[in-house]
Amino acid sequence: MAAPKVTKTRILMISDTHSTDYNPEEAKRPFRKPLPKADVLLHCGDLTMIGHLEEYKKAIEMMRNIDAELKLVIAGNHDISLDSDYFEREGMRMHRQKWDRSCSKKALEMWKGDHANSAGITYLEEGTYEFKLSNGAKFSIYASPYQPEFCNWAFPYERHEDRYNPSNSSNSVAWEARAVARNPIPDFPNVDIVVTHGPPFGRLDATISGEHVGCSHLLSAMRRAKPRLHCFGHIHEGWGAERVDWSKRSSAQSLVSGSTDVKVANRFPVDEDKMIADRCAYVDVSSDGAEPLRRGEETLMVNASIMDADYRPVNGPWLVDLDLPAV
């Protein structure tokens, strides 16, 4: 039986840019223009510090000049006016003297309308989408801006709530979780890329104190879906990339109880000087690379947070060559 057709695709990933710009004069930082050319740009949320309209405009202008055929963007917990329910409850408290009840409506119109479209940006709300590229790639992507409740910021859910697995899934039943998924992540092999704001539990999710704060239900969904790529941000200190190997199973229950019992290759090493010179950290897991990704057995996980824990834009974007399905 012939192997499915694939095409090598270059993906540039950034997250948690928090209204910063990429200053070309900051020669000692990798996040500076021009960023590397790619087929796809993924921004994993936290475009702003607190969701003001002028911050969104700055984020759009920052991405306007990135050379990518397809630019896909989700929100994060700091992008509070893009969560209309949250903004209705908390917008006045968060925006204080700058509060404008219409800010949420205007923000959504900005990201869904001509302002973002003119920069080549497609804003993704929670759900599954399909896209085609001029290189022949046709891929599915699941997007979600939500993460476990965090200091009363936007796009929250409680840790006992399973937002990513179907209500009839053994994952939710075994964990005694409350199933709340409106748009569950599809089963393998129906999604190629997953982009979320928050990380899965135990995977590039450790805070500066060493605590793992990712979502165990999201990790379970990743084991079920086995996407080629899962990129996220949110936890600045977790910046990095690793290959997660699903081929040796561990019980779902052990994952919930706090174990990170997943067979994982060593985190990809990063040469900081090269990253600064190249304006990115680069990984090749395509069929042209030394160790191609094993579809259905491995997922490349990337925390693409540009900021460090002190909100300094010192981390580089991730640039990945990956095989995607071909038309």
Score class of each variant (00 low, 15 high):
residue 116 A to N: 08
residue 120 G to F: 09
residue 120 G to H: 02
residue 121 I to Y: 05
residue 123 Y to M: 14
residue 124 L to Y: 08
residue 128 T to M: 03
residue 129 Y to F: 15
residue 130 E to C: 11
residue 131 F to G: 06
residue 132 K to E: 15
residue 132 K to I: 08
residue 133 L to W: 03
residue 134 S to N: 13
residue 135 N to T: 06
residue 136 G to I: 08
residue 137 A to Q: 06
residue 138 K to F: 07
residue 139 F to S: 02
residue 141 I to G: 01
residue 142 Y to D: 12
residue 143 A to E: 13
residue 145 P to S: 14
residue 149 E to V: 06
residue 150 F to E: 09
residue 150 F to A: 06
residue 151 C to T: 13
residue 152 N to R: 14
residue 156 P to L: 11
residue 157 Y to M: 13
residue 163 R to P: 10
residue 163 R to W: 13
residue 164 Y to T: 09
residue 167 S to N: 12
residue 168 N to F: 10
residue 168 N to W: 11
residue 172 S to E: 07
residue 174 A to G: 07
residue 174 A to E: 14
residue 177 A to M: 09
residue 177 A to E: 12
residue 179 A to W: 00
residue 180 V to K: 06
residue 181 A to Y: 01
residue 184 P to C: 03
residue 184 P to G: 05
residue 186 P to R: 00
residue 186 P to K: 04
residue 186 P to E: 03
residue 190 N to R: 08
residue 191 V to E: 05
residue 191 V to R: 05
residue 194 V to S: 03
residue 196 T to H: 00
residue 197 H to W: 04
residue 198 G to A: 05
residue 199 P to E: 03
residue 200 P to E: 08
residue 200 P to A: 13
residue 200 P to D: 10
residue 201 F to D: 02
residue 209 S to H: 08
residue 210 G to W: 08
residue 210 G to K: 01
residue 212 H to T: 01
residue 213 V to G: 00
residue 214 G to A: 12
residue 214 G to K: 02
residue 216 S to W: 01
residue 217 H to L: 06
residue 217 H to Q: 06
residue 218 L to W: 05
residue 218 L to C: 08
residue 219 L to Y: 03
residue 219 L to Q: 01
residue 219 L to M: 14
residue 220 S to G: 15
residue 231 C to Y: 04
residue 232 F to C: 01
residue 235 I to R: 00
residue 236 H to N: 12
residue 237 E to I: 02
residue 237 E to C: 06
residue 240 G to I: 04
residue 243 R to P: 00
residue 246 W to H: 10
